[in-house]
Amino acid sequence: MKNTFILLTGLAFLGSTAAVAQSDFSGHLKARQGQFRILAINLGILGAMAKGEAPYDAEAAQHAADTLKAVSMIHEPPLWPEGSDNMSIEGTRALPSIWDEREDFLAKWAGLGEAVSGMQEVAGTGQEAVGPALGKVGGACKACHDKHRAPDT
């Protein structure tokens, strides 16, 4: 009886630890999703200007590009603790490959940084420069999404 009690207590503790650990990822998940929302908003500003859907505004374009660069400089590893993938928690499309192929994931994040640096250099110089730079940023996003993000269901 005593052994059963100890076993059940231990299992209850482990179960509650797992639940706490999973809920501990909510802040990480919100932070990285917020980061991607900031990217999306600013890419939308630049995309609308590049397509002529919004008037080109050099100052607004530069601010958007500067914001993209700032977000790309966030040190990613703290936002992606192991166990915060779509197989382990709900509310994310992050594939386990982010941890299984960590160097590739971080290289793709660095590729985004390079692409937004190019955007930052040209965003304020004219509408004709925004489109090609935006294509490079989109390519960097796609490279990571194709490999490390589950499709939208």
Rank of each mutant, 00 (worst) to 15 (best):
L79G: 00
A61K: 03
E82D: 15
F36G: 11
P55D: 07
G15A: 06
F25C: 01
P55Q: 11
M119L: 05
I45L: 04
Q22I: 05
A70C: 09
M49C: 08
A94W: 01
E114C: 05
N42M: 05
T17C: 11
Q33S: 08
G44N: 02
S16K: 08
A58D: 02
F25P: 00
L46H: 02
S16C: 12
L43Q: 05
Q62Y: 12
Q35R: 13
S117R: 06
S117D: 05
Q120M: 15
A54E: 14
L79D: 01
G126P: 02
P55I: 07
M73R: 14
A40L: 14
D100K: 11
Q127F: 14
T92K: 04
D104C: 15
E101W: 15
G44E: 09
L68G: 00
E101K: 15
A65D: 01
A61Y: 00
K51Q: 07
G113W: 02
A40N: 15
G47I: 03
W99H: 11
D104E: 07
G15V: 03
T17E: 10
M49I: 07
E114D: 08
K69C: 03
V122A: 00
G113S: 01
W80F: 12
A70L: 06
M49F: 03
L43C: 14
S26T: 08
S23Q: 12
F25S: 00
L29F: 05
D24C: 10
E82T: 13
R102I: 06
A54M: 12
A31L: 05
I98T: 03
E82L: 13
I89E: 07
M73P: 14
F36P: 10
L79I: 04
P78L: 06
L43F: 09
R37Q: 09
E82M: 10
F105P: 03
